[in-house]
Design a protein around this nucleic acid. Structure first.
Lengths: 160, 160
DNA sequence: TATTGTTATACTCTATAACTATA
DNA sequence: TATAGTTATAGAGTATAACAATA
């Protein structure tokens, strides 16, 4: 894929792979495009020692001070057990704190630290810059259409 | 997300999580939508004992008889080592065969068996049916726009 | 030297059951 | 009994290095 380069004659017989059956299968394209976005994001976030999930969690906590873990898991659309290690990591790095909720001692309110908010500022700027490169050539209208379609698929009743 | 249901007063204070920072981040929506598509596909393919990757490999092999593993890995956009176990599984189930290429004894030509072609027919029909449900409410023009945008992102220079 | 397929390995993400402490 | 957070665990996808056989 990266380099078609020079292939032996036998190989070039099929060098253009027929993917007609898959071409109208939207999941096929979403997977491939998402892999590119994901790989780019990994590189973009590496300097900040964040991954997509730690980045998303940090952003939502900064923007929603006092958020509970279960609410964050819902917002991120991941299972609660999987969120625990993400919160553990952010807390270990002193980017956020778990604070006991006095009125419900089972729950934690998640609060970003100053360091967390500073990292947020830098990481968000980097992600926006990288994404604008990735989406270069796709006009605003199209972007909005794509995002609206993604949201519609997200809300599909088949989800639960 | 699945069930906002009844939450204690303290929780409802933030029951609408502010995701404004993430809203225009296309990767955020792609991830969430892809998870829905992926989860649906898992269910759709379960009766055939296929996963997204084994399904994709089977389809491409049926449509491209004689394909080499390295070409298939390129077409599927996965690393060659990861394809090996997929091919192993399809071969163990006698859906495909690895056949030595006389002119290049390093390579294998991948050929679907009759059973493989029969499973292909059924699985492709099921996937098309399920996807049409998933995309219900998204008109043809929008679907084409989304697929075109995905292809453009796929081809981003940042990929390699 | 380079390429095909392979092995081994590690990391990430996802998903479920079962536990604890609170409510 | 139900919920919030946790632990443990398993399955799947992704990525890299290194190897044998062959070109």
């Amino acid at each position: 894929m990266k380099k078609p380069a020079s292939k032996p004659a036998e190989a070039t017989a099929v060098h253009q792979v027929d993917d007609e059956t898959l071409r109208n299968f939207i999941g096929y394209h979403m997977k491939r495009a998402f892999n590119v976005v994901q790989a780019d994001l990994v590189q973009t976030l590496k300097p900040f020692d964040l991954r997509m999930l730690t980045y998303t969690a940090l952003v939502l906590i900064v923007d929603n001070p006092g958020l509970r873990q279960s609410q964050l898991a819902d917002a991120m659309d991941i299972e609660r057990p999987n969120l625990v290690v993400i919160i553990d990591e952010l807390e270990r790095r002193e980017l956020i704190n778990r604070e006991r909720v006095p009125t419900d001692r089972r729950a934690y309110a998640l609060i970003a630290t100053l360091a967390g908010r500073r990292l947020y500022e830098k990481a968000v700027a980097a992600v926006i810059a990288h994404e604008s490169v990735l989406l270069d050539g796709i006009d605003e209208t199209t972007r909005a259409t794509v995002i609206a379609a993604m949201k519609q698929i997200e809300k599909s009743p088949r989800k639960g």
